[in-house]
Design a protein around this nucleic acid. Sequence first.
DNA 1: CTGTTAGCGCCTTCAG
DNA 2: CTGAAGGCGCTAACAG
Lengths: 299, 299
Amino acid sequence: MLEAAEALKFQPSVLARSLRTRTTFTVGFVVPDVASPFYAAALKGAQGALEESGYRVMLMNSGQEVAGEVTALQTLLNHQVDGLLLSTTGISASRFDETVGRRGTPCVFFDSMLEGAGAGGVRIDNARGIDLLVDHLVEHGHTEIALLAGSLEETSGRERLDAYHLAMERHGLTVGPDRVRVCRWSQEAGRAETNALLGLANRPTAIVASSAELAVGCLAACRERGLHLPGDLAVVSFDDPYFGALLEPSLTAVAYDAGAVGSVAASLLVEAMREGHTRRELSIPVNLVRRRSCGCEDA
Amino acid sequence: MLEAAEALKFQPSVLARSLRTRTTFTVGFVVPDVASPFYAAALKGAQGALEESGYRVMLMNSGQEVAGEVTALQTLLNHQVDGLLLSTTGISASRFDETVGRRGTPCVFFDSMLEGAGAGGVRIDNARGIDLLVDHLVEHGHTEIALLAGSLEETSGRERLDAYHLAMERHGLTVGPDRVRVCRWSQEAGRAETNALLGLANRPTAIVASSAELAVGCLAACRERGLHLPGDLAVVSFDDPYFGALLEPSLTAVAYDAGAVGSVAASLLVEAMREGHTRRELSIPVNLVRRRSCGCEDA
DNA sequence: CTGTTAGCGCCTTCAG
DNA sequence: CTGAAGGCGCTAACAG
C-alpha cells in the first residue's frame, strides 16, 4: 500500500481538523493551585483518564481568586476546548452561565463545586469523613472539640464545617464561641489559628484539622508551646499525607484517593462530551487511619 | 465605534489564527509524574511564567518510561506546540532528534536533561547540594557515609551520585561496597534500601538521601528498627519538604526553589521561541537547612 | 492607506 | 463507490 507507507510519516494537522469539525479533543483543567498535593494528584488522575479517551489537557491556575478563574475559563473557551474540569474558587452561578453557559461546553466540577451547575460533579465524602473524625475523638472521651475549618469559599470547606456542627449536635455536644477557626488552607494559618485556640479561656482538648496543611501547622504550634500530644491535646486531620506515619506524634487522619477524584471527574466529562447531558454527581469514599495523635497506639 | 462595541463580545478563533499563522501560542510540558511535589511545583512556576507571556500549557505525563515520553512528544508536536518543556526519563539523543529535531520546535530541559540537546536547560545545583550535605556530616565527625542514590536514569540522580563520590574523595574517605544504593525515587525504596544498609556488616553512621521521599522512607525504616536518631544514625536529605521541621527528628536538608526551576525554564523557552536559538544552561541555587537529624540542635 | 482575495489543511458534501 | 470542490475563520499579500 502506498497509503500505508506514507502513513508512517504523515501526521494529519490537528488544527485544520479542529477548525473543520469544531472539535478539539482538548479539555481545560482549572484549579486554584496545581502545586498543592491534592490538585496535583487529581490532575494526574484526570490526565490519565482523558488521555485514554483520546483527549489532551490544557492547564490553568486560577490563583485562588474569581477573577483568575473567569480569565482562565475564557482563555480555555477561546481555545474551543470540548470540556472543562473545574475546581472553583467561588464563581457565581450567573457569572458561570454567562461565561461558559452561553457556549454550552460541558463542565464537570470536582472537590469544590457550583451546586447544580454544569454536567455534574465529583466530591470527596466530606460529611462521612468529618463524622469519622469527630466520632473517634468522642470514643476517646473528648467533648471539647475545636475545628480548624479552612476557607468557606470552597464547598469542601463549607461541607466539612456543616458536618462538624451536625456531628457535634448528634453527640449532644455544644460548640463554644471561637471554637471554629475559618482561615486559609495553609500551614501558617493552621499554626496561627491553633495558637488562637490554645489561648482561649477554656481551651479545647481536641482539634480537627480540615486539611493536612492545617494539621501540620497545628503540630508546629503545639511543638512551639511544648505541648505533649496526644496527652495535652488530641489532633486529627482530614487528609492523610504520605508522611503522616512519621510525624511526631503520627497523625490520625481521614484518607481518600485524590487521584480518583480527578479520574472519576474525567470519566464523567468524557461521558458528557460523547453522549450529551446526563447530569451526575458522585462522591469518593473516605476511611479512617488510626495513629497516635488521637490517643490510639500505633499498630 | 461599532467595532469597539462588537469587540466586547467577539472572540477571534484561536484555531483559525493558528492554522493561518502556524503559531499556536501553546507550550507542551512533559514530566514523568505530575503528582510528585517537585514536578507539581515546577509546573506551577512554568505555567505562571508562560501565561504572562501569552502562552498556554498542554500537559503530558510520560509515566517514567521512554515510550510514554516519545508518545507525549509526538502528540504535542501534532498539536503544533510552539515550544517544549521537558524533564526527560532518558530519551536518547537520536530518538529525540528524530522526534522533535525534524520539526525544529524549541525545547528547554529542566531537572533531568539530555546533555547538549534542545534550546538549553535548567538544573538544580546538584553538585553543590551534595557537597553541602557531605561536608556537614564530616563536620559532625562522620566518615562512614552512605548514599540512597535514587535512580540513575535521570541526570539529577547521576549528578548527585557523582558529586557524592567526589566529595568523599575530597575528604579522603573511601566508599565501601554496597554503600551506594541505586533505587526508584519512592518512599518504599528508601525504606527497603535503608534496611539493606543497616543490615551491612559495618553499617554506616550517616546516610545521605537523594530526595525527600527517600529520606522519609529511611526514617520509616529507622523507626521500625527502634533506632535513635541522630545518635545511632545521622540522616540528611536533598530536598527540604514543607513538613521537614515536624518529622522526628526534624530533617536537615538541602533546600531550593522548585517553582523557580519551572519559571526559569519557561523564560528560557519564551526567549528561544521569540529570538531563535541562543542555547543557554542555568542552574538553581541550593542552601543547607540545619535541623536535628544530622546531630545539630534545633534553632 | 484601505479593501479585497487567496489560501492554511482538513472534512463533508455532492457529482460522476 | 470513487473523486473533486467548497468552506471552517483567519491573516498576509496584493490591488485600488
